[in-house]
Design a binder for these strands. Sequence first.
DNA 1: TTGTATGCGTTATCAC
DNA 2: GTGATAACGCATACAA
Lengths: 344, 344
Amino acid sequence: MSASRRRVSQPPINLQMSDIARLAGVSESTVSRALKDSPMIAASTRERIRRLAEEAGYTVNPVASSLRSRQSGVITVGVPLVHEREPHLVDPFMMTMLAHLADTLADRGYNMLLAKIAVHQDGWVRRLQQPGRSDGVILIGQSFEHAAINEAARAGIPLAVWGSRLPNQKYPVVGSDNRLGGQLAAAHLAERGRKRIVFLGDERLPEVAHRHDGYRQALRDAGLKAAPERLVRTGFGGPDAEARMAEAIASGLAFDGVVAASDVIAIGAMRALSAAGRRVPEDVAVVGFDDILLAEHAHPPLTTVRQELARGAVALVDTVIAAIRGDAADSTLLPPTLIVRASA
Amino acid sequence: MSASRRRVSQPPINLQMSDIARLAGVSESTVSRALKDSPMIAASTRERIRRLAEEAGYTVNPVASSLRSRQSGVITVGVPLVHEREPHLVDPFMMTMLAHLADTLADRGYNMLLAKIAVHQDGWVRRLQQPGRSDGVILIGQSFEHAAINEAARAGIPLAVWGSRLPNQKYPVVGSDNRLGGQLAAAHLAERGRKRIVFLGDERLPEVAHRHDGYRQALRDAGLKAAPERLVRTGFGGPDAEARMAEAIASGLAFDGVVAASDVIAIGAMRALSAAGRRVPEDVAVVGFDDILLAEHAHPPLTTVRQELARGAVALVDTVIAAIRGDAADSTLLPPTLIVRASA
DNA sequence: TTGTATGCGTTATCAC
DNA sequence: GTGATAACGCATACAA
């Protein structure tokens, strides 16, 4: 059942601007201007040329256009891969963010070029913005690359980054108030009488670090102490989180509450708890982070800190567009919200 | 907290090939060849030039390269939007497919350009493959555009389409055996003694049509009759499905089983059933389609027909690459699997 | 308001 | 094995 064919039938007669110019009896420049609605051209001829091009099925060659004009109409969205082999893109948070970004970029008339970034390899910053291919870059997550991102910003790459505010930051970030988010989560558990609350996540990552800070603040406020052994480090993958939680349980760690750095982590943890015969929330109350679609469908439905991804995506896009224009590109701090369901 | 800056500091000294040529004491042609590992160049000079370029931080300008060579290293992934306002990309099935495609394309050394396609507007096929911007196109879903896609294929655009096999198809498709899938779903319900089984989906779309065919076949095989009023039409959105299901219940339609055209539809239906006081699976058994991550977390966990998206994504990518090369681009039929959980 | 001329940075073609 | 030269298709400074 072959459906192949050489590019032979119906040669798409690669029309160029000169063809339209001839058809219209004007010069190429006029066509070029008319097609981008330049006010230089009389409205009547503009209209005529547009119609002619339309009928002929001509579209401007974006590659040539972008070589000459140094504008591509494309924005690169980069996903830093912390650990080589994780298929990060399939992560629900990442997918949702990408979908919102794609929607917003389309709204703004930009195309989206998706790039997985192996941040191990040196020089990824340069590869990121191959000259001319895209007008700007959105990075989803800072990973451990604060310094490298700063360098990229200093090199003049229009940038917007999803993440946390850090000292000495030369690039605009969009992100939730992670400290507040962590605080909301832990305070909620404390209010429900939980005394020994575990934090589950990789606190070396900037966003998670802030969530952890908020968590400790809330514990202090509640008069609880944050035992260091109750910081259980895990990556963002569900199976990883499940394994780390299982280990913690097996090690005899005593706890009655969990603040997870993400919903996927929380759900992995609940799996491990369930496997170990601990009931949620009776024995252990669990709070997640993100409020992905899965959260409300989890067993039990997950209490979590919602991040406003749709708003975040809009802010990221508008920020990078501002940077491209050379306008002030300010950082944006989004308010997280505690969504109380059944798990805590 | 402004983090903006004009592109002034640290001018990235836009290095070009001529600079490397001068540095190496050779011509531009030699540099060009060396950097693409042409066997024409002596291994020693090749290595020397590569190192020089590396050190200088030079990368080939992909726009200029692609204007001249007519190869972009980019593949466009198009998502046809059936209904204008649905944010289709946020659909879990779509997001998962996109993530797998992005992973696979990256593996194959291609970049992914994401395009939402408004199929209402005429001429979308042409816009899809703006000359030069990408080497080929992957379409996720045929929508109602079989004829237009055929036209694109005839025009020589290298294509691969996720969808169903249709008569007179001039383009390669990758997709599940939807007829078999529908059959598996309905047969499972029949085996469990369900007699009045509703089909929930838009049977005008090719893939859904085939699932519906399989459903009817299974009913016939089980000696049941497929009453036309048990075909309840709905789009792919969860809220839409919930509303249609609620209407069907309110209208007094009698049924004890549901075959849904997707998991999202199934979950929407279960919501409506639950709201109407019908228990799943006791009163109504429900089978979904896709096996998205959400399915196993649904209430109750959803029995569904799994599609192998990861394999599908690989097939799509390899198919479009074959088409780009001018090789035979064959269609691929993936085997669906029934995953039995608690909902049926 | 429109046309003319030049060049964007690379690669293909042809010569050496 | 390497170099010179002319495109690739368009947009802009400048001239008219």
